[in-house]
């Protein structure tokens, strides 16, 4: 046996555990979801093995209950729109807060940086549900903010913050912030800070140093952080459920509804595939836009 075939064999052997996990945990379920989206809903959940495109039809359209006319599904569209909007908001706020935070940590003496990073990471290690309820405790009508404001006499009635889009965005921002700080910090730590000095020396004001030197150099971290925050926000389930009440549904909640109370697994499957498609399209556009800017410099 030649060395080459031997090493090829070893390579497959080494890859096989990962391939096995990926095929039964990722590719397999995806395939099942795709197949289910073309089947008929069972009366008590599950699917009946009859081919149907009803589920896909119902993703964007609906038959009128009374006269069978076909129109856009306003309910679904508004949930799609809210999911994208709140995820974008979450990403932008996380970037606005995470970027200065990462810069602050990266400019501390090396011995202190790990301690600062730990402060960012500790909430991340805490249970998601507990963190979400903590946010609830702060913003609900009898919560910390409202009771303080009422006590000092600034307002007489509590401000309704819970069960609003604001609450959902705030919750997701809080939950996903470490996912922004980590990659941005990682690329900032690698950055040569003498470049910042060089730019200051060459008459660049603070703002222009940020815009012309720091930002272009840490852009890979910003791109990674934005993706890491945007994607889980889009599919978020617990946060909109707890902080949005029943009012501010997002895609994750809609999907859960179809598999649960709705007893319409094919529709749930079709919605899941649609979510996946939105993520893919957004990723392709985002990465391409980020890459284009890069090459236009060179």
């Amino acid at each position: 046996m030649s060395n080459e075939t031997q090493s090829a064999k070893t390579r497959w052997l080494l890859l096989s555990p990962a391939l096995f996990i990926l095929s039964i945990a990722a590719a397999g379920p995806l395939l099942i979801v795709l197949v289910y989206s073309f089947l008929t809903a069972g009366d008590y959940g599950g699917v009946v093995w009859d081919f149907s495109t009803d589920a896909w039809f119902n993703v964007f359209a609906e038959k009128d209950f009374f006269d069978d006319t076909i129109g856009f599904s306003d309910a679904h569209l508004s949930i799609f729109w809210r999911s994208v909007k709140l995820s974008l908001m979450t990403t932008i706020v996380a970037l606005l807060v995470g970027f200065p935070t990462a810069y602050f940590i990266a400019t501390r003496p090396e011995s202190q940086r790990n301690a600062w990073m730990l402060l960012i990471m500790v909430p991340f290690w805490t249970n998601l549900l507990i963190r979400t309820f903590a946010v609830m405790e702060i913003i609900r009508n009898e919560g910390v903010i409202n009771s303080v404001l009422i006590k000092i006499g600034l307002i007489s009635e509590p401000i309704q913050m819970l069960y609003t889009e604001f609450a959902v965005t705030l919750g997701m921002f809080y939950v996903f912030l470490p996912l922004m700080v980590l990659p941005v910090y990682a690329s900032m730590e690698r950055m040569d800070f003498s470049l910042v000095e060089a730019a200051y020396d060459l008459y660049a004001s603070r703002w222009r140093v940020l815009k012309r030197v720091i930002f272009p150099l840490v852009k890979p971290g910003v791109v990674a952080g934005s993706i890491l925050v945007f994607i889980p926000s889009l599919g978020a389930y617990v946060t909109p459920r707890v902080l949005g009440g029943g009012k501010q549904l997002m895609l994750g909640n809609l999907i859960e509804l179809q598999y649960g109370q709705g007893r319409n697994w094919p529709l749930g499957a079709a919605l899941s595939i649609t979510l996946l498609a939105i993520v893919m399209v957004a990723l392709i556009f985002y990465v391409r836009a980020a890459g284009d800017e890069e090459t236009s410099h060179g």
Binding site: S194, L195, A198, P216, H297
Partner: peptide
């Protein structure tokens, strides 16, 4: 501040901007 001084520096490691 450094950016308002009529001096320029050649740094030991050159500190050239890698993205330009």
């Amino acid at each position: 501040p450094p950016f308002a001084r009529p001096v320029n520096t050649v740094f030991q490691n050159y500190a050239l901007f890698p993205h330009m």
